[in-house]
C-alpha cells in the first residue's frame, strides 16, 4: 500500500511538472524568412537507382571530366585514388597517364626538402589547398568541402547535388543576397558562397559521340560521378545483396517446410 502511494506521488510530480511546462505560454517564434524560399531537391532518375541499377560508365567518365576541369579548382577528392578510376571504365595505362598529370607532395631524396613528384596509380587525388586556412583564405572565408563523400554527407544525396548545381537564379523581390554570396533556393541557407560553377553550356568539351554538354547534362554527369566516388562499392553491395536475398528466400522456404514438418509430427502423434 505504501509502495503504491509512493508510486502515485512520484508519478504525480512528473506529470504535474510536465503539464506546467505544456501549458506554459510560449514565446512567439520569429519565422525565418529564408525558410519559405527553401526548396527540396528535385527527384531525378539515375542509372544507378534501384536494386538492379548500375552506374553508366560513360556518364561517370564525363562526370570525372567535369570534376577535373571545373570542381577540382576548389574542391578536393582526397579519398579517391587514381587506381579507383579503373572502376569507372578507364584502362590501367589510361589511369597511369591521368595520374602522371598530377603533382603530389613528396620529399626530395637528396636534400630532404618538401617537393613534388608526378602521381602514380596508388596515389590519391591531391587537394587544391594545402590546408583549411589556405582554403578559406582563397575563398572569402568559405571552406569548399572535399567531395569524396558529398552525396552521402548531404540529405537528398545526388538529387540534392544536381538541384544545387542547376538551382542558381535571381532572388525574388525583397530578398537581399549579402555581398559575395549567391542565391540558391536548394541550399539550406539560401545564400551560398560558391559562385555558379556550371555557368554556360559547352563549358566542358565532351568527346565525340557523347551528349551535348548542357548545364543540366554536365550537372547530372558530375553528380553521378560523385555519387560513385562516395561509395565505389555500391554496385558490389547491391549485387551481393541480390545473391544473399535469393539464397535467404530459398532457405526461408525450406526452414518453413521443416518447421511445419516437425510440428505436423507432433499433431499426428497427439491424435493417436
Amino acid at each position: 500500500m505504501l509502495g503504491r502511494l509512493i508510486s502515485y506521488a512520484i508519478g504525480g510530480v512528473f506529470v504535474l511538472t510536465l503539464l506546467v511546462a505544456a501549458f506554459a505560454p510560449r514565446e512567439a517564434v520569429v519565422e525565418d524568412p529564408n525558410h519559405a524560399l527553401h526548396k527540396y531537391p528535385m527527384k531525378i532518375s539515375w542509372a544507378q537507382d534501384g536494386v538492379f541499377g548500375t552506374f553508366d560508365r560513360a556518364q561517370l567518365q564525363r562526370g570525372f571530366q567535369v570534376y577535373k576541369e571545373v570542381c577540382a579548382a576548389c574542391h578536393g577528392l582526397e579519398r579517391i585514388a587514381f587506381r579507383n578510376l579503373v572502376d569507372i571504365g578507364f584502362s590501367e595505362p589510361e589511369v597511369k597517364a591521368i595520374a602522371k598529370a598530377y603533382e603530389v607532395a613528396s620529399i626530395d631524396d637528396k636534400t630532404g626538402e618538401a617537393s613534388t613528384r608526378p602521381a602514380v596509380a596508388s596515389d590519391y587525388f591531391p587537394s587544391p589547398y594545402p590546408n583549411e586556412v589556405a582554403a578559406r583564405a582563397a575563398n572569402n572565408n568559405a571552406l569548399p568541402p572535399d567531395l569524396s563523400l558529398i552525396t552521402k554527407a548531404r540529405q537528398g544525396g545526388k538529387d540534392y547535388l544536381h538541384s544545387l548545381l542547376v538551382g542558381y537564379g535571381q532572388p525574388p523581390a525583397g530578398h537581399e543576397v549579402p555581398e559575395g554570396l549567391y542565391y540558391n533556393p536548394y541550399f539550406a541557407n539560401i545564400n551560398i558562397a560558391m559562385p555558379p560553377p556550371l555557368a554556360s553550356a559547352g563549358q566542358v568539351t565532351y568527346a565525340e559521340g557523347q551528349p551535348e554538354p548542357t548545364i543540366d547534362q554536365m550537372s547530372r554527369d558530375v553528380s553521378a560521378f560523385l555519387d560513385w566516388a562516395a561509395e565505389p562499392k555500391a554496385e558490389t553491395r547491391k549485387r551481393t545483396g541480390v545473391a544473399v536475398m535469393i539464397f535467404l528466400l530459398i532457405l526461408t522456404g525450406l526452414s518453413y517446410l521443416a518447421y511445419r514438418r516437425v510440428w505436423a509430427e507432433l499433431k499426428s502423434r497427439g491424435a493417436h
Binding site: G11, L18, A22
Partner: peptide, 14 residues
C-alpha cells in the same frame, strides 16, 4: 512530447 511524456509516467506510476 510534454503531453506524451506525462502519459508515459501516468501509465506506469499511476
Amino acid at each position: 512530447s510534454q503531453i506524451a511524456s506525462a502519459y508515459y509516467f501516468l501509465h506506469f506510476l499511476v
